[in-house]
């Protein structure tokens, strides 16, 4: 009975009649607005530039040292290490996403606007992801130069899968960053929590190295372990699903944290 009453409500009825795609479009428009504002804010502070410079510099350094060792064929090591650099750099990028809004009090404004908690969280996640894409774009000279100097004979396939892998590997990391940023208004704590979680998920398979049986589970939990296949040119469906599950879980928890303010 209660459901019927709700449907008959004029506002609700109108929403039900509207075609699905308009609703999706509207949902995305607002989410994109939140993301765009965050990106502009990120790139109007020093954080984005310092982290991107640091990130690009380290990749350049690794690129040169791999070339000097004459191991151009082993370029996947570069991408393994890129993933590890992300573990250090991403907490600094994600720590401000929600914590800054909380500190400024603008979160209160955002959450009293006709915006769902999911839109806020996905918007923030997208801003973090934009940083990642910018960072990865800055390293595209690596496959370019390899291709150029090999005279077009190099197999670039593993490079592209490595980039796809990095994007999927970083998605849960960014989502975990969003989560920690939703928990506290102290950005240092948000960064530490994020970094701690990353490390845990990174090394969780170490004690199980070489072991079989139940130890297999820990290896499967490790985010980093699965990433290595991507750099070998392998894209496995279950790995992608795995990364997406982690991303969803972390974003879901962030939404729950935002929603919990109402009841505290």
């Amino acid at each position: 009975m209660k459901g019927a009453v709700t449907v008959l409500h004029p506002g609700r009825a109108l929403i039900l009649i509207r075609p699905l795609w308009t609703r999706i479009y509207e949902w995305l428009t607002v989410t994109a607005l939140i993301a765009r504002r965050e990106i502009r804010s990120l790139f109007s502070s020093w954080i984005a530039y310092v982290t991107l410079t640091f990130f690009a510099f380290l990749i350049g350094l690794m690129f040169i040292s791999i070339l000097q060792l004459g191991e151009a064929g082993q370029m996947r090591v570069l991408y393994w290490n890129t993933a590890i650099i992300l573990i250090f750099v991403l907490p600094i990028v994600t720590m401000r996403l929600l914590a800054e809004e909380r500190r400024l009090g603008t979160l209160e404004l955002l959450l009293t606007s006709p915006v769902t908690d999911w839109q806020v969280v996905v918007g923030k996640f997208s801003a973090g992801f934009f940083w990642l894409l910018t960072g990865l774009a800055l390293s595209l000279y690596v496959p370019y130069l390899i291709n150029r100097f090999s005279g077009g004979t190099a197999d670039l396939g593993p490079y592209w899968t490595a980039y796809i892998g990095l994007a999927f590997f970083a998605a849960p990391l960014i989502a975990i960053g969003v989560f920690w940023s939703s928990v506290t208004d102290n950005q240092i704590i948000a960064a530490m929590g994020t970094f701690g979680t990353y490390l845990l998920l990174y090394i969780i398979n170490w004690p199980t190295e070489g072991a079989a049986g139940w130890a297999e589970i820990f290896r499967k939990i490790s985010l980093y372990y699965r990433f290595q296949d991507f750099t070998a040119g392998l894209i496995k469906f279950q790995d992608i699903v795995y990364y997406l599950c982690w991303t969803f879980l972390a974003l879901y928890l962030s939404v729950q944290v935002l929603a919990s303010r109402r009841w505290r």
Partner: peptide, 14 residues
Amino acid sequence: IGYLPETVPIYSEM
């Protein structure tokens, strides 16, 4: 609704 919280919430870099 239009809401003005107690601490005026504005993004300082905008």
